[in-house]
Simulated scan of single mutants.
Amino acid sequence: MSAAPAHILALRFSALGDVAMTVPVLKQLLAQNPALTITLVSLPFHRPLFENIERLHFYEADIKKDFKGIGGLIRLARKLKNDIRFDAVADLHDVLRTKIIRNFLGPAPLAVIDKGRKEKKELTRPKNKKLRPLKTTFQRYADVFIKLGVPVDISCQTLEIRNQKSDIRNRTSARIGIAPFAKHAAKMYPPDKMKQVVQQLADNSHHTLFLFGSKAEAPVLELWAAEFKNVQVVAGRFTFAGELQLMARMDVMLTMDSANMHLASLYAVPVVSVWGGTHPWLGFYGWGQDPENAVQTDLPCRPSSVFGNKPCPVHGEAGCMQEITPEMIVARITKILDR
């Protein structure tokens, strides 16, 4: 039996939420295997996610600029071979570009993620759905390393102890982060209803609300914030690293099934997430998050999409959220703050 690898080269480029989901797995992997070193190859933008993790080296590769196209990916593979003395490869992405890279990395043990496409299709098809919780993406990542002969147990998924300078009990205001947007419309709570959520939360003078989003989404959030003294817009005002630092200070986050759910989870922030066409059973729920904090309703059409990139065939875009009221969301946030 061959020895377990000492240095694993791991590949994962996108999307942001999926990359963020590698972080707790890699932390567990390194903690349970003190002789192991990992080099993660990813986009430069993702670097802040992996800072200060012992024995984890971040290798940034801009595949949209410096290593663009097939020729660029081949150059990247050759550069990785020259720069890093790895003895195994973990493909945590399994897309065309990682297939090209790994084919030019030379003869090293390789393990590739099993994305479970067949069972996900069974769960999201319009008729005769096989409704059951599927293996989590965290476990799918862990399985890649297990295939390489490196054991890792991620069965205990808990939010890490938060190390904050100020505790909520020593403050007069609770910090509530709200990230109302998602990449796809089918995963977004209707804006008019989300504004009602903001209004109901802002009516409590002991709440301070922080609205997260992209620079392009900031104008909408500015309009919402203009009506309330205790609502601040974060979107477009910080670097990614700065936004993460601010998110880590929230007492609760409200998100869609989006990257922000996973980013907040990295900092042990309780997350209330709103679900429509997608479903936690597909394996993308936040690390250590309480299942009760997933706000959703049971509709026979759900889930209708793995990634939320397709409208519900029955209700259209965001239609699977039709029965979720602002009061349901506010009640869940309030319950967390009361605890």
Rank of each mutant, 00 (worst) to 15 (best):
G213I: 06
V271A: 14
N293R: 14
Q289A: 03
N260L: 04
M188D: 00
M194S: 00
H184C: 04
R249I: 02
Y285D: 05
A202H: 05
V233W: 01
P300T: 03
L209N: 01
I176A: 11
V269C: 11
P303F: 13
K310G: 01
V306Q: 06
I168H: 03
Q232R: 15
G236I: 05
V252L: 04
N170K: 15
V274K: 01
A179T: 00
P313T: 05
A268Y: 08
Q196T: 15
E217H: 07
K215G: 08
G236M: 09
N309K: 06
K193T: 13
A182Q: 08
V274E: 01
K215W: 15
F181R: 02
L211R: 06
F238E: 12
R302V: 01
A218V: 15
P311N: 06
R169V: 12
G308T: 01
K183T: 13
V233I: 02
G242C: 11
V314G: 04
S214R: 03
P300Q: 03
R169Y: 12
V272E: 01
F181G: 06
S258F: 07
M256V: 00
V220W: 11
C301I: 13
T208H: 12
G288K: 12
S205E: 04
A225R: 05
M261D: 00
R171M: 13
A259I: 10
G213V: 06
N230H: 14
F212T: 03
I168A: 09
A216K: 15
D192L: 14
A264L: 11
S265V: 03
V295T: 10
Y189R: 02
D290Y: 14
N230E: 04
P270R: 12
V269D: 10
S273D: 04
Q245A: 15
V314R: 10
W224F: 07
F240C: 01
M250H: 03
G288S: 08
V220D: 09
I176S: 08
I178N: 06
V231K: 07
F240T: 01
M250A: 05
E217V: 13
S173K: 15
